[in-house]
């Protein structure tokens, strides 16, 4: 079977320790979280770090909690924990809907939010969710912490704002009282990466959309979102026609490429169809709808 290339291993005892280890080893070091993105790459020898800094002992990176008007999800929170979190489910059912279709139950036991987000696969689901929810990523380095909006987090496929010597420590999601949210995904088979996925989080007030967040994955949507479609809907009634128009705008803003998951025309169609479905369900779930 496939085996990783030789590598050194060290366990960090704290975030500060991890940061100092990263600093010490520079770009030859990689953080090891759940390992479900990194280790397969290492086995294929597509990744060959010289040293792994294991951060699984860092309890300070775990936990889902409410802090003021934000929900804070630690980087080392596993997908299974997100799936089963009552806090997240209460405020954002989109998490449960997305997590149910991320990989499989065993992978979700181990894979972490931070690991998934830093791997930054273009089809990564929590990136689409985070875009829809307008989350904020908290990154720590030797100098301290900085924040980056989810919608500015990605630099491109597999590239994020987390630089060498930095750790993504948590993501903060603003609580939107009365919001409705939903996630739609088409995959070739359960556990597969998305052919296309779309999430929506909306609030409705006075019969019109008061806020709209759209997240779209796997179809090369800029920053996993569709700002024109969002802007179009704000202030409009949640009618099928308005939602369809917005969904089409969202699809038009995507630039998918063909691969074995499907041709570009199909993926573009899915961007429309799934955005429409997610918006429709989110609108129906929003209080005041």
């Amino acid at each position: 079977m496939q085996t990783p290339a030789p590598v050194d291993y060290v366990r960090a005892t704290s975030v500060a320790d991890a940061l100092s280890l990263l600093q010490q080893h520079g770009d030859e070091a990689r953080l090891l979280a759940g390992g479900h993105s990194l280790l397969p790459m290492m086995k294929l020898r597509l990744a060959r770090p010289e040293i792994l800094v294991d951060i699984n002992d860092l309890d300070e990176l775990r936990g889902i909690r409410i802090d003021g008007n934000e929900i804070v999800v630690g980087a080392m929170v596993t997908h299974a924990e997100i799936l089963n979190s009552p806090i997240l489910f209460e405020h954002y059912p989109i998490f449960r809907e997305a997590e149910k279709v991320i990989a499989d139950p065993i992978v979700r036991n181990k894979g972490t939010m931070g690991g998934s987000m830093c791997q930054a696969d273009p089809a990564e689901d929590l990136s689409a969710v985070g875009a829809a929810l307008r989350g904020t990523v908290v990154i720590q380095n030797a100098e301290g912490r900085r924040t980056v909006a989810m919608r500015e987090f990605h630099e491109g496929p597999y590239e994020t704002k987390v630089a060498d010597g930095e750790i993504l420590v948590e993501v903060r999601y603003p609580i939107l009282p009365g919001s409705g949210s939903a996630y739609e995904k088409v995959e070739r088979r359960s556990g597969d990466w998305a052919v296309c996925a779309a999430g929506a989080c909306v609030t409705i007030s006075g019969g019109v959309f008061s806020s709209v967040g759209i997240g779209i994955g796997a179809v090369n949507a800029e920053h996993f979102t569709a700002v024109d479609a969002e802007a179009f809907l704000v202030g409009k009634e949640p009618t099928a026609e308005n939602i369809a128009t917005a969904a089409q705008m969202a699809a038009d803003s995507c630039d998918p490429s063909a691969d074995q998951r499907g041709p570009a025309d199909y993926k573009k169609h899915l961007a429309m169809e799934l955005t429409k479905r997610a918006l429709t369900r989110a609108a129906a779930a929003a209080k005041g709808a």
């Binding site: 390992g35 479900h36 280790l39 397969p40 086995k43 792994l52 065993i106 992978v107 036991n109």
Partner: peptide, 23 residues
């Protein structure tokens, strides 16, 4: 090799884990 098949599942601290994807 790719964490898909689950033939390697065992428990780590009581939780099923794909042991081909853990050091």
């Amino acid at each position: 090799d790719t964490s898909n098949c689950g033939a390697c599942v065992l428990w780590v601290d009581g939780t099923p884990t794909k042991s081909c994807t853990m050091l």
